[in-house]
């Protein structure tokens, strides 16, 4: 087959044909797989929320174990009793069944620019206990970090789940490991009447985290900026949810 491949016209035609073919392959794949991917992402969110309120398959000291995707939808409707959009100025709530699908990044941007003033919040019930689960979103070293923090009505942390988009493997990425997340359990986010949050602190003289009233957890080695991101994220979120949290405490 003798094609004159160095002619300009051939080069242009080749480039156009190639781009069209590749574009068609990728576009059809993306549309074909989208429902499946969306479903996976929805299940993951449900798993994360349930994880924060202690509904998970963790065993002993091992790795993070979610409840399986086959059961997550059923458990989600069983344990999560209410989903709200909370007004960040007044603390008023508006029930919304799809609140957990809210895109936190867009929602926070809208609040900043004054176009919106509500954030999602979920209330869970398990063994007679009530869990107020706050979704959070912030910035790590490389990219976004986010998480869910479950609080009791007296502002004690019952559980957390953190995740990240692109923190360094082995360093900042460890925020989603149990040895980091488990430390938050039992910590208090309030100091007197202030929402101080929980600081990820280096050298806090309490690496085993026995002191639950110091508003600190031990930092990850080599992940200072990711840790600071978590500290800032928790503090900012508490500020936004403050009107609503005040209401829960006084009730």
């Amino acid at each position: 087959m003798a094609v004159k491949t160095d002619k300009n016209s051939y080069t242009v035609v080749f480039a156009i044909v190639m781009v069209v073919i590749v574009g068609a392959i990728l576009a059809s794949m993306a549309t074909g797989l989208k429902p499946k991917i969306d479903e996976n992402e929805r299940f993951e969110k449900q798993q994360n929320i349930l994880y924060a309120m202690g509904v998970n398959n963790n065993e002993g000291e091992g790795d993070v174990a979610f409840i399986p995707t086959t059961e997550v939808e059923e458990d989600f409707s069983k344990y999560i009793t209410k989903q709200f959009m909370v007004n960040t100025n007044t603390g008023e709530t508006m029930e919304s069944g799809e609140a957990y699908l809210t895109d936190m990044k867009k929602q926070l941007a809208a609040i900043k620019s004054g176009n919106d003033e509500s954030l999602p919040l979920f209330v869970g019930e398990k063994d007679g206990e009530t869990f107020y689960i706050l979704p959070m979103y912030g910035k790590g070293l490389w990219d976004a970090i986010w998480g869910f923090v479950s609080l009791s009505s007296d502002m004690e942390v019952q559980g957390v789940y953190f995740d990240h988009k692109g923190e360094t493997p082995g360093l900042g990425a460890n925020i989603k490991m149990r040895f980091f997340m488990d430390d938050f359990e039992g910590e208090r986010v309030m100091d007197g009447n202030n929402y101080t949050g929980i600081a990820v602190a280096k050298g806090n003289n309490d690496p085993l985290n026995n002191d639950k009233d110091d508003h600190q957890v031990d930092a990850l080695a080599g992940a200072t900026i990711t840790g600071n991101g978590i500290t800032a994220m928790i503090k900012e979120s508490l500020n936004l949810y403050k009107p609503y949290l005040d209401k829960i405490r006084t009730n």
Partner: peptide, 11 residues
């Protein structure tokens, strides 16, 4: 055999 050599890196 059909890749034009001028744009082969892009291809």
């Amino acid at each position: 055999n059909i890749i034009p050599s001028k744009i082969r890196i892009i291809v």
